[in-house]
């Protein structure tokens, strides 16, 4: 996948061409998302890496499955729209063992086309990994030897997964640079001259009720959480949606020193939202 150029001895190497971030050196040292994961990939480890916001299952250093409470599982994706019958799924999960994972049982029994299962599985894997690899405050923990009942279907190299996760972060940042809407309850808002929402965005908007978060909506739609985040950020950029701010943290009764500078009021004032959008747009110029 990565080409490494060589220069004959005794010749001056040509000037370096500008390259993307994916340079070989950076590549080898890992992307810095999780040094532990990079090390596990190098030693071809098998087991599960448990991080604050999700788990990655490795088999011989490659990622075979990922789970996160923030992303709908493979079962949700497959069952919500009736791709697979819930009893068939339950049976496969119950019968799965070390040798025959649930994926293989389903495929051998002809319950689902291989392409459909691979598509759903890869979607769920990258989706959960996006959250599992999010910056965390606690160190990860690796349990050697632990397998997953699904079994290996289409293992993904760690560096490809990390690269994709970073690319996804950048994509969201480009769409709308405020990450608040990713985890907070969402509210519809009135927008002046907003672009018309697409069919997929309308499905998201219809479920916005001031309580559900993007992850909740993804689960209801049987849709990948990252796909939902993309629409949420686009809708936020269009002014059609905003995040309900969390209540301010309780303040000690007599705070001696007020913090320096002007504290940001934490209210859902449309004017402030507009000002923030203006500021972000100006910064982006």
């Amino acid at each position: 996948m990565t080409l490494v150029g060589t220069t004959p001895r005794g010749t001056t190497p040509p000037p370096r061409l500008p390259v993307r971030e994916k340079s070989t050196a950076r590549h080898r040292a890992g992307t810095g998302l999780s040094p532990m994961l990079t090390r596990l990939a190098a030693e071809r480890a098998t087991g599960v890496l448990e991080r604050e916001r999700g788990s990655l299952y490795l088999a011989e250093g490659r990622v075979v499955h990922a789970e996160s409470p923030y992303a709908p599982g493979l079962d949700v994706l497959l069952l919500t729209h009736g791709t697979l019958d819930p009893t068939v799924w339950r049976e496969a999960v119950e019968r799965a063992d070390q040798e025959y994972g649930a994926a293989r049982l389903l495929l051998d029994a002809g319950r689902i086309p291989r392409g459909a299962l691979e598509l759903c599985h890869l979607g769920a894997l990258y989706d959960a990994a996006y959250f599992a690899l999010a910056p965390s405050s606690a160190p990860g923990r690796f349990v050697y030897g632990a397998g997953h009942w699904l079994g290996a279907l289409r293992p993904v190299p760690v560096d490809a997964l990390e690269r994709e996760t970073l690319r996804r972060r950048e994509l969201l940042e480009r769409l709308w640079p405020d990450p608040l809407a990713d985890g907070a309850p969402l509210l519809r808002s009135e927008a002046v001259a907003a672009p018309a929402a697409t069919a997929r965005q309308n499905a998201v908007l219809a479920l916005v009720n001031g309580v559900r978060t993007a992850s909740d909506i993804a689960r209801e739609l049987g849709r990948q959480a990252f796909h939902t985040l993309v629409d949420v950020r686009r809708l936020a950029a269009a002014g059609l949606l905003s995040a309900l701010l969390p209540p301010p943290p309780p303040v000690a009764p007599a705070a001696p020193d007020p913090p320096r500078g002007i504290p940001m009021p934490r209210v859902n004032d449309p004017d402030i939202t507009l000002l923030k959008r203006l500021r972000d747009a100006l910064e982006a110029l």
Binding site: H81, T83, L119, C120, G123, R223, H227
Partner: peptide, 8 residues
């Protein structure tokens, strides 16, 4: 076109 939600 897929029976599940996707965009491929």
């Amino acid at each position: 076109p897929t029976s599940f939600d996707s965009s491929v």
